[in-house]
Simulated scan of single mutants.
Amino acid sequence: MDTTLALRVVQALLVAAAATALAIRYARRRRLLDQPGQRRSHSVPTARGGGIAIVAAVLGCAGPLLDIAPLPGLLLATSLILVAAIGWWDDHAALSARARIAVQIPAAVLLAAVLYGLVPSSPDLPASIALLGLIVLSTVWSINLHNFMDGINGLLTLQSAYVFGMAALLGRVGLEHGLNDVPAILAAACLGFLPFNFPRARIFLGDVGSGALGLLIAAVLWWAALREPRWIAAGLLLVSAFAIDATATLLQRFWRGRRWYSAHREHLYQWLVRSGGSHARVVSYYMAWNLLLAAPLALLVATSRSVGVAAATVVLTYAAGIALWCRARRAVLAGVRRHA
C-alpha cells in the first residue's frame, strides 16, 4: 500500500469512527433506539442510525477521488444522499415500503444515468433501455437486499468491507475497475464503524446505513462491470453469500403465499441465531464462505481470460450455495422443532 493510499484509508477510518461516536450520542439523546421484540435478534435497546457515519466518511473522503466531471459527480452524490436521507427519515419515523421505493427508484435512475456514460460505444435504443432498466432494478434490489440482511451485529458491515476490499484487491491484480482508490476508502469507512457494531453492538447501521451500502455496492460493481465485463462474474461471486440467502428466502416466502415484503425473521442467518448461535458465530459462517470460496473464485476470474470459466464458476457457486442454504435451513428448523 503506497503512502497516499495509506493516509486516505486512515482518514476514512477516523472520520467514520468519530462520526459514529457522535451518532451514538445523537441517537441516545433523541431516543432512537431499536427495542427487543419478536422480529428482532437483539436483547437490549440499541441505538440506530449509525450508518450516517459511513455516509459522511464516503462523501468526505471517497468522492474527491473519482476522476469524473462535476455534473456526474453531483448526480452520484445526490443518489447517495437521497437513499441515505430516506433511510435516515425511516430511522426516525417508520415509513411505508411504498414511500421508500418512491425515493429509491429516482436515486437508482440518477446512478444509472452516470453509469451509462461509462459505456464505451452507445448501444441502440432497445439495448440502452434494457441496460438502464437492468441497472435501476438491480440497484433497487441491492438497496433492499442489504436492508433485509442487516439483522445481526456486524454482518452487513463486514460483508460490505469484504466486497469493497476485494474490489480494491482485484483492481490491483489486473481486473481493472477505473475507480482509483475508492473501493479501499469505502472498505475503510466500514471498518471505522465496525468496532461500534461488532461483536457487541453499541449502535446499529439503521436504514440509513443499510440502504446506502446497498447503493454503493451496486454502484461499485456496475461501474467496474461497464469498464471490464469480467466484473459481472466477479461481482456475482463477491455478493453470493447475501444474494443467495436473501433471494432464496424471498422466493420461499412467495411460494408459501406469505407477504414477502413484510418484516420477518426467516433468513438463514436469523434462523441460525434463533437456534442458539451467537451473532459472532453466525457472522463467521458467512465470512468463511466469502474468504474460503467466493474470494479465491473471484481471483480465478480476475486472472482468467475465459468467459466460459467465469460463467461456469458463477453457476456452480450459486448452485452449491442454494443447495447448502436448503440443507442448512432444514437442519436448523429440525433442531428448533426438537427444542420447542
Rank of each mutant, 00 (worst) to 15 (best):
M1N: 15
D2I: 05
T4K: 09
Q11N: 13
L13C: 05
A17E: 02
I24K: 12
R25P: 00
A27N: 05
R28W: 11
R29Y: 12
R31T: 02
R31N: 06
L32G: 02
Q38R: 14
H42I: 03
P45S: 04
R48G: 08
G49E: 04
G51F: 10
A53V: 02
I54G: 11
V55E: 09
V55Y: 11
A57R: 04
C61V: 10
I68W: 15
A69G: 13
P70W: 11
L71A: 15
L74W: 14
L75H: 04
L80E: 13
I81D: 03
A85K: 10
D90E: 12
A97Q: 14
A99N: 12
A102S: 15
Q104G: 14
A107W: 10
A107E: 09
A112V: 06
V114K: 10
L115N: 08
G117H: 01
G117T: 04
S122F: 03
S122Q: 12
P123S: 08
D124V: 04
P126M: 05
S128M: 13
I129Q: 05
A130I: 07
L132Y: 11
G133A: 03
I135N: 00
S142N: 07
I143S: 09
I143W: 09
L145R: 09
H146L: 15
M149G: 06
D150H: 03
I152L: 14
L155V: 00
T157M: 06
S160I: 01
V163M: 05
F164D: 00
F164M: 03
A167Q: 09
L169D: 12
G174C: 07
E176N: 09
H177W: 08
N180F: 06
D181L: 12
V182N: 05
A184K: 04
A188F: 00
A189F: 00
F193R: 13
P199N: 02
G206C: 07
G209A: 08
G211H: 15
G211L: 15
A212V: 07
L215T: 07
I217G: 01
A218F: 06
A218N: 04
V220Y: 03
W223R: 04
A225S: 13
A234P: 01
L236Y: 01
L237K: 03
V239K: 02
S240T: 08
A241R: 08
A241V: 14
A241Y: 14
F242A: 06
A246P: 10
A248Y: 13
T249E: 02
L250W: 15
L251T: 02
Q252C: 10
W255S: 15
W255T: 14
R256C: 13
A263F: 03
H264N: 05
H267N: 05
H267S: 03
H267E: 06
W271K: 15
G277Q: 12
G277F: 01
G277P: 11
N290F: 08
L292Y: 09
L293P: 01
A294I: 00
A298C: 07
A298G: 11
A298L: 07
L299T: 08
L300E: 02
V301Y: 05
T303C: 00
S304N: 11
S304H: 08
S306C: 06
V307P: 14
G308K: 02
A310M: 00
T313M: 08
V315P: 12
Y318A: 12
A319R: 11
A320T: 11
A320F: 13
G321T: 04
G321A: 03
G321N: 05
L324E: 04
R327A: 15
R327F: 13
A328G: 11
R329C: 01
V332G: 07
V332R: 09
G335K: 09
A340W: 10
